[in-house]
Design a protein around this nucleic acid. Structure first.
Lengths: 142, 142
DNA sequence: GCTTGCCTTGACGTCGGCGTCAAGGACTAC
DNA sequence: GTAGTCCTTGACGCCGACGTCAAGGCAAGC
């Protein structure tokens, strides 16, 4: 199978495959005409890479999985190095999610505060003569 | 106040301030010698930008806040455009957090599965003669 | 006058993961 | 032979928010 077919079957592009090869992640055999040649096992490796990429792993982080498969193990995560990557990723994800939740809370608070301030001004504007004095002696309220 | 002092007081760099100016976000007056000149109000604007940046807003998203302050409003979020940015950001944050939680769950599942597979192999290795057959007729278990 | 430290503009570098174009070779179908 | 489709390498572009370097101007202290 040539590069175009592999790309199509994996739902990616030839450029991407050449990029992976340039990174040493997915080297290719060459035919007599210089064309890259791939087999089903390469498709397996490529799918492993793509799956992890979809999870937000960067390319280097997929390397242990690919090497594990290439070493003949049944799954990309059959090797300790892959498990380490999983664990590290879980830690990163937890940290990131925590940060984002914190930010979300703060932004939500800012929005609520700003809306209250806006509504207070709007309510003031409805009173002809401007807002009520903060401190009053009961004269106008009666 | 010149650029170096403003940068120091805001905990950023001169490069950053020049970048903001190049983006039209924080223009500066110029002294006779061509030096940029800033005042306390600029520091206020800059701090608004930095706060939002810390929340993960990109530069363009801080613009409504800065313009709101520059228009004389008491807060950067005293204007409807700023509130819109808040709301949009909340939506983005919720979506992102949701995705990350989903990924976290999937990665956690993969890790658990891979660890079970590893432990199963390890347990097999402890039995001299290899793993028990999946289907047996009771001969060896007795 | 000389050093030191701040300032100026301009321009290239960074990071990741490719997209996109250019120029040319290989192979198939007609 | 030639049109069309695939392949090759090489190289520049992109995105955001700056970092970093270069060459030179301005001001202050000695």
């Amino acid at each position: 199978m040539r590069i175009g077919e592999l790309a199509a079957r994996a739902g990616t592009t030839t450029r991407t495959l050449r990029y992976y090869e340039s990174r040493g992640l997915l080297p290719a055999r060459r035919g007599e005409n210089g064309y890259r040649t791939y087999d089903e096992h390469d498709l397996r490796l490529l799918r492993q890479i793509r799956t992890l990429q979809d999870f937000g792993f960067d390319l280097e982080e997929t390397r242990p999985f690919v090497e594990c498969l290439r070493a003949g193990h049944p799954e990309g995560d059959s090797c300790p190095a892959s498990l380490d990557v999983y664990r590290r990723k879980l830690g990163e994800l937890d940290a990131l999610i925590g940060e984002l939740r914190s930010v979300r809370a703060q932004v939500g608070e800012q929005l609520a505060r700003a809306e209250r301030a806006r509504d207070a001004l709007a309510a003031d504007a409805e009173v002809p003569g401007g807002p009520e004095p903060v401190c009053e002696l009961g004269g106008r309220t009666r």
